[in-house]
């Protein structure tokens, strides 16, 4: 939309505040613009809408069903409530369910302090988990030279699936199986390191909200030096031998 032709606005009420919304924008976009916090997890700017985490559910006056802020365009005179007691309760329950489903032990997680699930618990006042914890044990896939997948920390938000398909165009990731058994898989459930369609772009790691996908070498004791690269460069420069390094020479 060019700045010379501003889109029409419609009057909307959000948490009692009367604001002008841009026609066609979502409730979430409006809320972010006017500074009303609505929690999200699977939603990410730039990717298609998934609608699986349900955290951005809001109430719209006159609508018996909750609406997803990330997927619902505003309409004229829409009266939106984003933080009623019921909504806060629902959000807490959902966050607790995510903690109970996986194995989210912050103290041992590579993403502690940089984790959206951890933040969601704090900002939504989740101070303990009412539900039986699963102590999930799906194992870790460290077969990729650069990245690690820990399925026990995966919240199945599909950000990685979407970024890989929609932005990188590689479609390495998909969710396999169903229900509680659903799990993130690379290609046809091969170890990530054997997924030939992976371009090593790392976008999946960048968008992961938790510690499910992480860069190798960031954990304690994982630092690997690679001084031999200097010899390679020197040989290449001096003798003009720019031979591809073999697999075992790739720094891991």
């Amino acid at each position: 939309m060019s700045p010379r032709e501003p889109r029409a606005t419609v009057p909307v009420t959000i948490d009692g505040q009367e604001v002008d919304a841009v026609e066609g924008e979502t409730i979430l976009s409006l809320a972010r613009r006017v500074g009303v916090p609505i929690p999200t997890l699977c939603y990410l700017d730039g990717l298609s809408v998934h609608g699986g985490c349900r955290l951005c559910s809001v109430e719209v006056d006159g609508d018996p069903r909750l609406r997803l802020a990330c997927a619902t365009p505003v309409w004229q005179d829409m009266d939106i409530r984003t933080s009623t007691w019921d909504l806060q309760e629902h959000r807490r329950r959902i966050i607790e369910l995510l903690f109970a489903e996986g194995n989210h032990i912050c103290a041992t997680c590579v993403s502690s302090g940089a984790c959206e699930l951890q933040d969601l618990a704090a900002t939504n006042r989740v101070d303990h988990i009412h539900y039986e914890l699963s102590y999930a044990d799906e194992g870790v896939d460290a077969s990729h030279p650069k990245y690690v997948l820990d399925r026990d920390r995966c919240v199945k938000c599909t950000r990685c699936v979407r970024v890989c398909a929609e932005v990188e165009g590689a479609s390495v990731w998909e969710i396999a199986e169903r229900g509680g058994g659903s799990r993130l898989v690379a290609e046809m459930d091969v170890p990530w390191g054997e997924a030939s369609s992976c371009t090593w772009c790392g976008k999946c790691v960048l968008v992961c909200p938790t510690g499910a996908l992480s860069f190798k070498g960031r954990g304690v004791g994982e630092m690997r030096h690679d001084a031999e690269v200097v010899a390679f460069l020197s040989r290449a420069r001096n003798e003009g031998e720019w031979v591809n390094r073999t697999d075992e020479e790739v720094p891991s």
């Binding site: 699986g52 369910l97 039986e132 199945k156 169903r178 509680g180």
Partner: peptide, 21 residues
């Protein structure tokens, strides 16, 4: 319902499991 949940959304995928528990 727990066995038939597709797993896409959190409340159904995990909620039915914990309700069953």
């Amino acid at each position: 319902c727990r066995d038939e949940s597709c797993g896409k959304c959190v409340p159904c995928r995990v909620g039915t499991e914990k309700m069953h528990a």
